[in-house]
C-alpha cells in the first residue's frame, strides 16, 4: 500500500537523481503536454527515444517501469479498445452494429497505447529518482506565484511533507490494529461486499482516534518548538539549479522543436 502512495523512490546517484526536483517536475509536465503534439509514428519514435534516453541516464532497473504500468493495464486496455472500435476511417475490416474495426481505429489504438505507456514511464521516472519530500519542495517552489492570490503555499507544503512523513507510521499502526482485530475474530478481505465494509469499521475507528491524538500531540510539539505559521521562516533544505538542469530542459525543448517539424512530415 505504502509503495503505491509514495511512488517507489530508489536512491541513486545518477545525473537524473541529482537534478533539481523543480526541473524534473517541470520536465515531467512538459513531456505530458508535448506528447499530445505527436500525431504519426515518427513522432512517437522520437518521444520513445527521449524516454528511453532519460531512463538510461537515471540508471534504474527497467523492471520498475513495467511494474508502474501493471496497475493501470485495465484502464489502458479499455481506452485502447474504445479507440479501436469506435473510430472509423480508412479500410474497414469488420463491422457489427456501432462497432467497427478500421485501419484508423487500429492506428489510433496503437497511438493511445503508446501515449499512456510513455506518460507512465516518465512519471515513474520522476517518482523513482525523486524522494517524495523533494517533490513536495519542488511543488512549494513552483506554487510560489500563487501566494499573490493568497494561496497558503507554505502551509500546503508543510501539510504535504507531514502527511508524507506520517504515512509509514500510520501504515505500521494499521497493521497493528488489523492484527489486534483479527485476534478478536474480525475477518479482513473475506465474505461479500457488505461483510467486507463491516470489517473495515473496527479498523477505521481506532485509526481515526489515534490519528487525531497524534495530530494534537504534533500540533503542541510544533508550537512548543516555535512554529507560528509559514511566514518568516528560513529554509534548511535548499535545491540548487545546476548546468545539468538547464541541459535537461534544453534537450526537452529541442525534442519539442523536432516534434513540431516531424508532425508535418
Amino acid at each position: 500500500m505504502g509503495k503505491v502512495l509514495l511512488g517507489r523512490y530508489v536512491p541513486g546517484d545518477s545525473i537524473v537523481h541529482q537534478m533539481d526536483p523543480r526541473a524534473k517536475l517541470i520536465l515531467s509536465f512538459f513531456f505530458i503536454i508535448i506528447i499530445f503534439l505527436a500525431n504519426n509514428w515518427q513522432s512517437y519514435v522520437l518521444l520513445l527515444t527521449l524516454t528511453i534516453g532519460s531512463i538510461m541516464a537515471a540508471k534504474v532497473n527497467f523492471a520498475f517501469f513495467i511494474k508502474g504500468v501493471r496497475p493501470l493495464i485495465w484502464l489502458i486496455l479499455f481506452t485502447v479498445l474504445l479507440q479501436i472500435f469506435f473510430s472509423s476511417g480508412g479500410t474497414i475490416f469488420w463491422r457489427w452494429g456501432p462497432f467497427n474495426l478500421s485501419y484508423f481505429g487500429l492506428i489510433n489504438g496503437a497511438y493511445v497505447f503508446c501515449r499512456f505507456v510513455l506518460i507512465i514511464f516518465m512519471s515513474t521516472l520522476l517518482t523513482l529518482t525523486t524522494a517524495p519530500l523533494e517533490i513536495a519542495d519542488a511543488l512549494e517552489k513552483l506554487m510560489m506565484p500563487l501566494k499573490k492570490i493568497k494561496v497558503p503555499v507554505y502551509e500546503i507544503s508543510l501539510m504535504l511533507s507531514i502527511a508524507l512523513r506520517f504515512v509509514p507510521t500510520l501504515m505500521d499502526e494499521t497493521a497493528k490494529i488489523m492484527n489486534a482485530q483479527r485476534s478478536r475474530g474480525v475477518n479482513f478481505g473475506e465474505g461479500n461486499i457488505m461483510q467486507q465494509i463491516k470489517s473495515v469499521v473496527p479498523l477505521l475507528v481506532p485509526l481515526f482516534v489515534s490519528s487525531f491524538n497524534r495530530a494534537e500531540d504534533l500540533a503542541t510539539a510544533m508550537e512548543a518548538r516555535g512554529y507560528r505559521g509559514g511566514e518568516g521562516r528560513t529554509k534548511y533544505r535548499v535545491h540548487y539549479w545546476h548546468t545539468s538542469d538547464t541541459t535537461g530542459c534544453a534537450v526537452f525543448v529541442i525534442v519539442m522543436l523536432i516534434l513540431l517539424f516531424v508532425r508535418h512530415w
Partner: peptide, 12 residues
C-alpha cells in the same frame, strides 16, 4: 514530550 513519534516533524 512522551511519544517519540508524535513530535517528529521533519522528514528525516
Amino acid at each position: 514530550f512522551q511519544n517519540p513519534d508524535n513530535q517528529f516533524v521533519g522528514a528525516n
